[in-house]
């Protein structure tokens, strides 16, 4: 098990997002999907933002996707940033386009930052941040 890192800012576990974090703690990537229009809905919310339906259900995803774009963080800057990230530098912030369609912000881990490329296929891994929070991150998919 990864060392629990309590220094970094943690997400608030809101009522809409609770099922997501419960699944993540089981190392499952889940997302809301609309029963009426079949749209995936991300981030978690009370109703479908494509059709307004409240008939959303949680579905498990493949956990696979592609790097849509990324940047490399080499410096902690900005009023909302935490110095707790300094020891991770350099690290990758990426937009991951999941195979099911939705785009997530995450980190690409498990390879040198120089190896990250657009279009690269990745799969989810979970890193524990607190007793409740396991963050989904993505590592290169070795075929």
């Amino acid at each position: 098990m990864a060392e629990v890192d309590v220094g970094k800012p943690l997400p608030a576990i809101t009522s809409e997002a609770k099922p997501f974090w419960e699944a993540a703690a089981q190392n499952k990537l889940v997302m809301q999907r609309c029963r009426d229009c079949q749209a995936y809905v991300w981030t978690p919310r009370p109703a479908c933002y494509e059709c307004g339906s409240e008939r959303l259900e949680w579905q498990e995803l493949s956990g696979k996707g592609q790097v849509y774009s990324f940047t490399v963080i080499r410096q902690v800057v900005g009023r909302a940033a935490s110095m707790a990230f300094e020891k991770e530098i350099p690290y990758v912030i990426a937009w991951i386009d999941l195979d099911e369609g939705p785009r997530m912000i995450s980190n690409v881990v498990g390879c040198p930052v120089e190896d990250v490329k657009l279009g690269m296929t990745v799969s989810v891994v979970f890193e524990q941040q607190s007793p409740e929070v396991w963050l989904p991150k993505f590592k290169p998919l070795v075929s």
Binding site: P9, A81, I105
Partner: peptide, 23 residues
């Protein structure tokens, strides 16, 4: 931003615009 960006170590608007520019 609080729940789905900052926990990953995003650095404000620079991080997102960098991804737009690279794309």
């Amino acid at each position: 931003m609080r729940d789905w960006e900052i926990p990953y170590g995003t650095m404000g608007p620079n991080s997102k615009i960098a991804m737009v520019m690279r794309r």
